[in-house]
Design a protein around this nucleic acid. Structure first.
Lengths: 297, 297
DNA sequence: CCAATGCGGTGCAAAAAATGCACCGCCCGG
DNA sequence: CCGGGCGGTGCATTTTTTGCACCGCATTGG
């Protein structure tokens, strides 16, 4: 939408931290950008930026304006979605921030299912840890978040919750595979591969370990659950993941065992949106589909 | 705000029902307006108007867009209010739709009290009946509504309620003045002056009268409570009004008597806003002041 | 049945606005 | 103390918007 160009420039300047860099990003000259921002500030009646040596930085007024812009943008795309609904087109774009566990099986399946009915709808899938996911919602960068054990912020509105106990992932020939359920100490006594601290699974592990005055001491610490899943095939170590991110392979090479609930509380996988926001039609419908799919797991 | 000009033109065209008339209203030529609207429709991806012989009319998509615009406008002015707060200026404009009973005493007092603290704030006071008041909120034409016995619509969010029994207004020498509390039949047997049907007071009277298979048969039916209050001084008739719109005159010429609650349910005076809307700072504060004042009555 | 009227839409030239370019003064770091 | 990067400005140029004249069309009223 053309009439929001000035806000886009403001956003670019805020992001770049300098008018000249922002101008380059937006493919105009610094003078043009400078003047548009100055003019808007004049019209608006307040400065949006602090002019600091070496660039600019948003002041509180600027933060408010930028937030207004993002809300406007989101509302406008919602309106466009509703209009598309009226004319029966059903287009739109859904953007979702999610934990890694959703990537291999759950989300691809659900997105394909949705797109089978609504081929005009496109998706952005952004992998974010539990803290980033909520910032993503608050800045209107994502419509939905599907996160394991999010840090509950005020702006996070829960749409659906399902419990997901942390499971141990190991090769079929691992000694621990004989037990149907593992104790936490079994896991900590065994060489293990763990996700980094920003992830919910690790958070639960750390918390539980500290309670038993133990420590999680991974031989590999990684941001990638994909790596964990594949690494345990190469060395006789264990990894951790939640069930929704796991699928028993056909060749039986990989096994999963839950960790006793006495040691490790069951975590929650949460589907949420920004509090109070009215989602675009397509996002709202996809959220309903996700909620139903989670219920049926 | 300049970047919303196109929406203003769309609104004007919708209101005028014809591009040419709208162009005249907005002091531009019809061709300019025409092209701006056409261009926006193209950019937006859908027509906003039905072209009918003799002019244009908003289609459903247009209604949605216009609603988005009004919401944006309201949000923007809220942001400006917040920014003014940051810099300590405290300006703004408060627009309120209210019943007539508030005009003589309550609202002038409260507005004066507010303006004493915030001289930069201006007011619009619109007299609306209970049905209009809520449309006013829904179209963002008013920030607040203070109405007796509103018709509850979905978009009406109640901020405060106080009970207001209907009172009879009469000259001091009226025969009914001897009773401390009146029965409905006393009133209907006496020549009476009543407000027209769209007002809450009349609604309550009609409803109660019908229950007793009686009818309200006013010698004068009027939209003006001011006229009622003054007319009873000239002829020995009774009128009706709620307490907040009444004040015992110094010379004792006018008396009020409540109608028995057995006959007439106590009505409610409601302070409300549009559901889900975040009011501008000044309006929100004024609403709090009003609520407090109503509580202390 | 046909002119008159009023409507939305369009081509084109004029007016207005936005932009790019060159340049200023300023401040910080080396 | 000076060089580089910053925000800001004057001016010519380009792009966009507007006004004017006019078209085709539908309704209306004689």
């Amino acid at each position: 939408m053309k009439h929001l160009q000035t806000f886009r420039l403001i956003e670019a300047a805020a992001r770049a931290g300098s008018m000249r860099r922002a101008a380059e990003d937006m493919n105009i000259t610094a003078s043009a950008l400078n003047r548009r921002i100055n003019r808007f500030e004049e019209e608006f009646g307040a400065a949006l930026f602090e002019r600091i040596p070496g660039g600019v930085r948003l002041n509180p007024a600027g933060e408010l304006v930028l937030h207004h812009y993002r809300g406007t943008l989101s509302d406008l795309s919602r309106v466009q979605g509703q209009v598309a609904d009226l004319s029966g087109e059903r287009r739109g774009h859904i953007s979702i921030a999610c934990s890694q566990a959703l990537l291999p099986y759950f989300l691809p399946r659900e997105i394909a299912r949705y797109r089978a009915e609504h081929p005009g709808v496109t998706f952005s899938v952004n992998v974010r840890d539990r803290s980033q996911a909520e910032q993503e919602l608050a800045s209107y960068s994502s419509d939905l978040a599907l996160v394991f054990e999010p840090i509950y912020l005020v702006d996070f509105e829960v749409l659906h919750v399902i419990p997901q106990p942390v499971n141990v992932v190991m090769r079929a020939d691992h000694p621990l595979a004989r037990k149907a359920e593992l104790r936490l100490r079994d896991c900590l006594d065994t060489p293990h591969v763990a996700p980094s601290v920003q992830y919910g699974v690790r958070h639960l592990l750390d918390f539980a370990a500290r309670r038993g005055t133990r420590r999680v001491a991974p031989v590999i610490e990684t941001e990638s659950f994909d790596l964990i899943r594949h690494y345990v095939l190469h060395e006789g170590v264990i990894g951790f993941q939640i069930p929704i991110g796991l699928k028993r392979p056909d060749d039986g090479s990989l096994l999963f065992r839950p960790i006793s609930e006495r040691d490790l509380p069951t975590g929650n996988l949460i589907l949420g949106q920004m509090r109070g926001r009215t989602l675009p039609v397509s996002s709202a419908r996809f959220a309903m589909q996700l909620a139903a799919a989670l219920r049926d797991i």
